[in-house]
Every structure is written in structure tokens, then in C-alpha cells.
Design a binder for these strands. Structure first.
Lengths: 124, 124
DNA sequence: TATATATGCAATCATTTGGTTGCGCAAGTT
DNA sequence: AACTTGCGCAACCAAATGATTGCATATATA
């Protein structure tokens, strides 16, 4: 009931998993990407999530476990329901990885600039 | 020899793989991420790449195959060597995926704005 | 032409992965 | 107190994955 929604101190199975996986492995599976997208706008329970897929609740639960293990997702218990919410900060890690390449391409542009500049000077 | 460097019309084993894989699956493996990073600044041959890893050339070759299959990497043959280069555009797909979330967060901010605005108006 | 090098491919193997079923337990409900 | 519901966990299984070894072929070199 409503009385329990914010009673976050009375949970039981909200396991804290060791960080075994990495984010890249977590998003490799299409079902997990779908889950991430679903909970991006609002936290959802395993049962609610499972309704969006053909596979069983346990399968979804397993995916949630993996997502939780790599901290992409956080659990929030309210009564006997566990809401899973997206950990925005963890998605940032993917963006950080991409940033490396942006930098490499940028420096490549700079090199091109230098070359163009050299050619320009030679013309003089 | 130099004569062959641009002779791209005389290759033999430069197979065109069917697109079976997903970019997300491709970057799931740490070795593949390392390969991507290595060739980001300049194209490399399988042998040159293999020197950077403990595993055998064939293992690296397999990873290259997977990367090629999902178009993350392109082959460029010069003589008997095959240079693998990064396909920048494909990395963009990952960024596009992240963009979804940026939009969701943004709209969340907008909702917040609306709420704040409503509160403001009520105060009046 | 004979030999060395660069590479892809097939077969094989241990490990991981994604999924299913069955179960136990805590939290609600009647 | 008895029943229902939500959820995690263990056992099990088929398929995919990552790596190895051996082999075939094309290119380069002596």
C-alpha cells in the first residue's frame, strides 16, 4: 500500500551484486538494450518489464541482474515490489569511450590543418 | 612493393562478409575494443595487431572478421597485406543510440521546467 | 622456380550466454 | 491463519563465443 512506497528500509532480497560485468557487455544484448530504454523514462518492476517481452519473467530477471551487476541499473524496493531504474551516470561511460575517438579524429583534422597550412606557406 | 599499394583491384581473400553482427556485440569484447582503438589513428595489418596481444594471430583475425562483419572495420588490400581501418560512421551508431537517452533526459528537464512554472504561477 | 611470408578458413574444445522450469521466501490480501 | 503475488536463486540445457591447431592459397623474394 501507499504506506510502504517510501519505506525503503524493509527490503529482503535486494542483493548487492559484485561488479563482474562491464557496461559494454551489458548493452550487447538487444533485450537488455530494450529494458534500458523502457526504464529510462521511469523505473519499472520485473513483472511490468516482462510483459513487454516474449520470454519469461525469470529471463528478464536474469537480464536485470546483469544490468545491476554492472551498475547500469539500480534497485529500489517498495514493499514487495522492486523498481529498477536506470543509472544515467553509467551510460556516460560509453560516451566517454566514444570521446577517445572524437579526440583522435579531431587531432587528425588538426594534422590536416597543419598540412594545408604548410602547403599554403610553400606557395608564398 | 610500392607499385601494388594502390592496386586495389587484385585481391584474393578479401571476403565480403554478410552483416550478421551488431555493433554493440562487436564492442562487447575488450580485445576488440583494443583493436578498434589501435586502428583508430591508422590502419593496421592482422600481424601488426597481433603483436599487441598475447593471443595468436588467428584469434585476432577472428576478431577482425567479427568487426568486419558488422562494418565497424574495413579491409584495404595492398599486395599480400590487408590493412584494417576503422569505419568512423559505424561508431556513430553507438552515439545515436546514446542520443535517445539524452533526449529522454532533456524532456525530463522540460517536464521539471513545466512543474516549476506551474508552481510559480500558482504562487501568483 | 623454390622458399618464406601474410592471411583466411575449417575443425575442435572449453567456457559463457540466454533461456526454461521448479522452488523458497517475504510481503500483501482475505 | 490461509492464500496469493512478486521476486530471486539454483539446476539444467542448447547455442554462441573465444581461442587453439592445422591447412590452403596468394604474394613476395632469392
Amino acid at each position: 500500500m501507499i504506506a510502504y512506497i517510501f519505506a525503503t528500509d524493509c527490503f529482503h532480497k535486494q542483493t548487492i551484486y559484485p561488479m563482474r560485468r562491464d557496461v559494454f557487455q551489458a548493452i550487447a544484448d538487444p533485450t537488455r538494450r530494450a529494458i534500458i530504454l523502457l526504464i529510462a523514462s521511469q523505473a519499472m518492476t520485473p513483472n511490468a518489464l516482462a510483459e513487454h517481452f516474449d520470454s519469461t519473467r525469470q529471463a528478464v530477471s536474469k537480464h536485470l541482474r546483469i544490468l545491476t551487476e554492472c551498475r547500469l541499473v539500480q534497485q529500489e524496493q517498495s514493499g514487495r515490489e522492486i523498481y529498477y531504474r536506470l543509472n544515467d551516470a553509467k551510460l556516460k561511460e560509453i560516451d566517454d569511450w566514444l570521446e577517445q575517438f572524437r579526440k583522435i579524429w579531431e587531432s587528425r583534422f588538426n594534422e590536416l590543418d597543419t598540412i594545408l597550412l604548410t602547403m599554403k606557406n610553400k606557395k608564398k
